[in-house]
Design a protein around this nucleic acid. Structure first.
Length: 558
RNA sequence: UGGCCGGUCGUCCAAUGGUAGGACACGGGCCUUUGGAGCCUGGUAUGGAGGUUCGAAUCCUCCCCGGCCAGCCA
């Protein structure tokens, strides 16, 4: 991470800053980013990554990447790999290797034994249903388990046998002995261990009992000397339990701090829902460019820097807000504008013939690679009698304020000449415009001191053009908050059926060397990224984000 | 009708008893060989009612609204 990536001021930063200044934890700061490897990371995680890694860096500390891998049923090594890749891509520096909650299974077990010996934990034989019934409700206290007063000896014996594979799944649990009447449900004798005969992606068959999140997280933080354990709002109710475990053990006690998770308009963020989109084939996979996953955004063409800029400027508070997608796009455009080479591509080609331009003649015109970056230099583009222009850039009958090409009007061909339309060729059957005929003004070649016209349009030389497939992505959902579904339906009812349109366009020859992952600005259209499915014969581009479009906005209004 | 946490421009955040400010979005203008970028500029926001105070977004009381919690998920 670069120092420009430091988080802006927020209450978490203030908190840590105050602790660092007062010498709490010896002035030391250590954080951690603790994903469960049960899915791919999404843009919401990017916020947490920026916060945790950024804060550690700012205060001269470290941030661990720790996998919260305590539920082997949901977790896979594949997810571990993708998470590592995404964190690195976002610039998170977690040192040589990540750490794992599963590294601490033995220590956690030993500590559980310690709690049993202190009379603070017991083996419970209640079934899942029974436990739910005895837990009480939001308004009524629960009732004590009939197994709550087992002797320490019996508990020790039973717990050891749980570990030693003697009991079937679900038959027993180890529970903390706290308070079944607590208004905080998390404190009503929470389960610490459950029996799960399942292979773990790292520990294999070594364990058949697995620790619960609450029994794992705080202790893992403590083992790693984490000073500030930053998590999302839904864990607020868990903090008393986090504190209780640490206090019973008398070990190093980190501070849990909760902040609001990121919600974005027109998308969903829960892993469960993202998984559903993948499984139902709504999208092509976790890295579908329409997905809010880090992988999807990367494939779509979002840059690491752009994403970091966005995440860094997010508010970190305790309100649960809904951030507009436009805010994200602003930062993506901002970075892409500075870094992307320009190129001319026509998405929906319309043939334009310069009737006074000599047949067979080709000249090279000089095009600027990036007006935001002089060092990017220029390139030559062949120019001839026939070129492709965008269908949108010609109207036989122009609406008001339409500055582009129409019969009798002049426009400039970018980097070329000023041209004037004098005729159209139509399909005799459909009346569709097949060709636009223009004359060019030889005195107006680009670079010469010349008159001005209202509009400049892009073009591609017909003879030298290469064909490209372009995937035009739109919002995955057609409502701001897809989670609010119509009665009786789930969020997929809000899927935008037009979130992907595939067109076949023409591009200037310089684009032929594009490699998967390369990003460009297609002049006047937007930012595009070469997709991994590109072949030598046919390059495929994903539209990352459109350029701001004053004309489109004007049209929309009228 | 249990507990916890929150309510400030359309949206996301600042202001920590002393002129309610920024970003995005939106509107107007300038500039322009990208209707891009950039620049300038505008606006009807402190959920409500009381109270404390010279002074309240901030402190107190009550009310209203929203989020989270009843997994052997995290």
């Amino acid at each position: 991470m670069k120092d420009t990536d430091l988080p802006r001021s927020n209450f978490v930063r203030d908190w840590i800053s105050a602790d660092a200044a007062s010498g709490k934890y010896g002035g030391r700061v250590r954080t951690r980013f603790p994903p469960e490897p049960n899915g791919y990371l999404h843009v919401g995680h990017a916020k947490s990554i920026m916060l945790n890694f950024g804060l550690a860096e700012e205060f001269g500390g470290k941030c661990n990447l720790r996998f919260d891998d305590t539920n082997p049923i949901k977790e896979e090594a594949e997810y571990v790999e993708s998470i590592i890749e995404d964190v690195r891509w976002l610039g998170g520096d977690f040192g040589e290797r990540p750490v794992y909650a599963s590294d601490y299974f033995q220590q956690l077990y030993d500590w559980a034994v310690e709690l049993i010996k202190k009379g603070k934990a017991f083996v419970c034989d209640l079934s899942g249903d029974q436990m739910r019934e005895s837990r009480g409700t939001l308004t009524e206290a629960g009732t004590n388990s009939p197994y709550r007063e087992r002797s320490v000896e019996e508990n020790l014996d039973l717990f050891a046998r749980m570990k030693d594979d003697e009991f079937p799944n679900g038959s027993r649990t180890l529970r903390a002995k706290i308070d079944m009447a607590s208004p905080n449900l998390n404190m009503r004798d929470p389960v610490m261990y459950r029996i799960l005969h399942a292979a773990h992606h790292r520990t294999g068959d070594q364990w058949c009992i697995y620790p619960m999140y609450d029994w794992t997280h705080g202790q893992s933080d403590s083992i790693e000397s984490v000073t500030h354990s930053i998590c999302t709002l839904e864990f607020e109710d868990h903090r008393p339990l986090y504190d209780w475990y640490l206090d019973q053990l008398g070990v190093f006690h980190p501070q849990q701090i909760e902040f609001d998770r990121l919600s974005l308009t027109y998308t969903v963020m829960s892993k469960r829902k993202l998984l559903q989109l993948v499984q139902q084939g709504v999208v092509e996979g976790w890295d579908d460019p329409r997905m809010p996953t880090i992988g999807g955004m990367r494939r779509r063409g979002y840059s690491s820097q752009g994403l970091r800029d966005f995440a860094r400027n997010l508010g970190v508070t305790k309100t649960s807000g809904l951030t507009e997608f436009e805010n994200l796009e602003y930062y993506i455009r901002g970075d892409l504008n500075k870094t992307s080479p320009r190129v001319m591509t026509v998405l929906r080609p319309l043939k334009l013939v310069l009737t006074n331009y000599p047949e067979g003649q080709v000249e090279m015109v000089e095009a600027v690679n990036n007006p935001e970056d002089e060092d990017a230099g220029t390139r030559s583009v062949p120019f001839g009698r026939e070129v492709w222009i965008e269908q949108d850039d010609f109207r036989e009958e122009p609406p008001k304020k339409y500055y582009r090409l129409y019969p009798g009007n002049e426009v400039r061909l970018r980097y070329g000449y000023i041209i004037k339309c004098h005729d159209v060729v139509k399909d005799p059957d459909t009346g569709e415009v097949m060709e636009v005929h223009c004359t060019y003004d030889a005195e107006t070649r680009s670079g010469q001191q010349t008159r001005r016209v209202k509009s400049t349009i892009h073009w591609v030389p017909a003879a030298e053009a290469i064909s490209v497939e372009v995937r035009l992505y739109d919002k995955l959902f057609n409502v701001e908050n897809p989670n609010e579904a119509p009665d009786g339906q789930d969020f997929t009812a809000n899927v935008n059926p037009k979130s992907l349109e595939v067109v076949h366009g023409k591009a200037e020859p310089s684009l032929a060397s594009a490699q998967p992952g390369d990003r460009y600005q297609f002049e006047r259209l937007g930012y595009f990224c070469a997709d991994k499915s590109s072949q030598a014969e046919l390059l495929v581009f994903n539209r990352t984000v459109e350029l701001r479009d004053a004309w489109a906005k004007l049209q929309k209004r009228s």
